[in-house]
Computed example of a mutant assay.
Amino acid sequence: MKMFLCFFVLFILGFDDSSSQGNVNKAIKILTKQVKKLQESNKANFEATNMKIETLKNESQTNVKSLDEKITNQYETKVLKLENLIEQTNLTKMDVNSLFGEITNQTEFLLKAMDYKLGILKVGNAECSQYNILNEADRGISSGDGDNCDSTGLNTSPMWKGASWYRFLPPAGTILSQAAPGEDHCGTWLSGWCNATLPTVPGSTLDIEICFDYSGFQCWIAYDGKVTNCGTYFVYYLDNIRDCTVNLRYCGAN
């Protein structure tokens, strides 16, 4: 456009003096119109540019606001999740502490029991080292009847020493029978068995009931006794049978 105007002016100036003043005026009018159009075009472009700038600014503000709200919402959501996680973690800590305590106790017990088994530690109970032995072959639960009685009076069993601490050893077995063997077993008439659970902690002692099985009655008569866990074996405090007119004997088992 600028080049066109320049050529146009040069063209007008190139007229000789004989040209009429009307042609000059006409050229000036044309130039004026072109300049005005150019100004209007620039103004329109400027206004359009301003509108685009405003639009971009509005869009930018909207996007920034939307992004800010999105970030804020995400932050609040994460904070809420974190608070819930902290609350759950606190509850879990209580459970973990309780569980850890149980596991620790069980682990200590297992390690202690292993030490006893390996002979690293010894149970300090006197009865675990000072006891009598019951190891008669016919004292075992699989044996039939006999005339043996655990008493220092009549029909005394070969290994019986009176009321004392005893340890069962093969071939009689390793423990006092935990089940009713029935009458006429263990080399006697009334077979004695432990009507109680054994202690699980090494060094601990429990009071027990010892029943004698007879004529379908698993606990026809009962004696009090004790049992101590010596780590790898058990020892029993067994009372002397008071009357052996009917033979009673403590029955061994594995």
Rank of each mutant, 00 (worst) to 15 (best):
F100I: 06
P181L: 06
N105C: 06
N254T: 13
L206V: 04
H185M: 08
T32R: 06
F234M: 10
S143E: 14
Y236L: 06
L99V: 11
W189A: 15
T72I: 07
E127D: 12
Q88F: 03
V9E: 07
W189I: 12
S151N: 06
W160L: 06
S215V: 10
D145R: 02
Y75L: 13
K112W: 05
L111I: 09
I12T: 09
M3D: 14
D207E: 09
F46T: 12
C230L: 07
T77P: 02
C230G: 01
G153N: 09
I221G: 05
D145K: 06
S41L: 13
E47M: 11
A172E: 02
T197N: 08
S204T: 14
D68Y: 14
A126E: 10
L13H: 04
K29H: 10
S157L: 06
Q21E: 11
E76K: 15
F4R: 05
R167I: 10
P171E: 04
N254E: 09
Q130I: 08
R249K: 14
Y250H: 09
Q178E: 11
E183C: 05
T49R: 03
C211P: 02
L31D: 01
N23A: 12
G173T: 04
L134C: 02
V35A: 14
G182F: 00
T200A: 07
G144F: 04
T49C: 03
Y223V: 05
D16C: 08
D239Y: 07
S157Q: 03
T104E: 14
N195I: 00
C211V: 01
L134R: 03
N23C: 02
G203P: 02
L118C: 02
Y116G: 00
F11M: 08
I103F: 14
C194K: 05
G146E: 03
C128K: 01
F15H: 06
W193G: 02
E127P: 03
S19V: 15
G140Q: 11
P181D: 05
I221Y: 14
G187I: 02
K29V: 13
F168D: 04
L111Q: 08
E59H: 10
L31C: 00
I30C: 05
Q218D: 14
F109A: 11
T55K: 15
A137N: 09
W165T: 00
G216L: 09
K43M: 12
N148D: 08
G22C: 02
D239M: 11
E83P: 00
I28A: 13
I53G: 01
Y214C: 06
P171A: 00
R139M: 13
Y214H: 14
K70M: 12
Y237M: 07
L91T: 13
C186V: 03
P181R: 06
G225F: 04
A126L: 10
E102C: 00
Y214F: 12
K70T: 15
E47G: 00
L91R: 10
D147K: 02
R167A: 09
S129D: 12
A27F: 05
G216Q: 08
C230V: 07
T232Y: 07
N97E: 15
E127N: 11
S66Q: 12
K117V: 04
K29R: 12
N125Q: 15
G252P: 01
G216E: 13
Q218V: 13
A172K: 00
T107W: 03
P158L: 05
W189S: 15
K33D: 14
L38I: 08
K226W: 07
A126F: 05
T92V: 03
Y250I: 08
Q21R: 09
L80Q: 15
G203Y: 01
Q88Y: 07
L80M: 13
